[in-house]
Amino acid sequence: MTASDLLNRLFMAVLTLLGVAVIVFCLLRIVPGDPIAMMISPSATPADIAALRAHYGLDLGLPQQFGIWFMDVLKGNFGTSISQRRDVMELIGERLPATLELAFAALVFGVLAGGVIATLGTLARRTALDPALDFINGLFLAVPDFVWALALVLLLGVFWPVFPLSGRIDPTLSTYFHTDFYLIESLVTLKFAAFGDLIAHMIMPMLALGLPLAAIVVRTLKEALAEAMVQDYVLLARLKGMSPLRLVLQEALRNAVGPTLTLTGVQFTFMIGGTVIVERIFSYPGLGNMAIDAVINRDLPLIQGIVLTFGAIFILVNILVDLIAGWLNPRGAAHG
């Protein structure tokens, strides 16, 4: 990707986010449910309700409401959460790191596990292990993240309780953190007790999110590797005495990784969507969990802020994937 391509993509990203903002704003005002109804006491009079509506600007016309909100967003002000009465940016800033850490851990797990299994499967071509692997992987492909989450809760949380069932960190640990990136911070500051506890809390939601990704990576990568392994350049390298593992990793992998990378990008955005339900199941204090609360409370500014955040992540991930793909494939880079 050239610099002008990148600028182009960034410009498109801004347009896309604008579109997302308009759609979310309109949709939230079309669907039934009134944020005011969620916060008033049963004894409130119609006058109280009207005053409250005016206070939040909900009595204005739709274009006017959008204009006010959007001008504020441009200034970096996402408004105040109706249910929590706090700045939306601040709330997202607290929760987003937890979700990013979880999603990134699941991504790393999924890609690594998938990559290792695909490589092993490629090395085991024409043995009995290969079809067995495909069969098991087929089963894994059929299980979605939330089913994994529930199964893991039962297996590793209840029947054989090795991992904590919920939360992000043991509250009795009383570790103080300067940032909201607990995992990274505990590692950097060498607080290993806290780090271990964070990992223990993260493993189950990470597996729930990462296992489906791993299964997809295995399938896509193994197929592409099988295609690459019969190319003449692999045969030549084999004749020159290259070991089977190096044949897969050095000769085939780089040429086979393209489709997997693109698909992983797409799957990663799905996975961030998946954090909403998985975080809920494990009471993990991330953005997704907060999104559900925001929807339940009809907290319009908070929902809008969260959706825009998710939108920005999706777009960023896609640009990143294209950048990596160009870097991995010299041909693609040469042709823009």
Binding site: Q231, D232, Y233, V234, L236, A237, Q250, E251, R254, N255, L328, N329, P330, R331
Partner: peptide
């Protein structure tokens, strides 16, 4: 065309 690895 196919005997040289495009990525190396």
């Amino acid at each position: 065309q196919t005997a040289l690895n495009p990525a190396r």
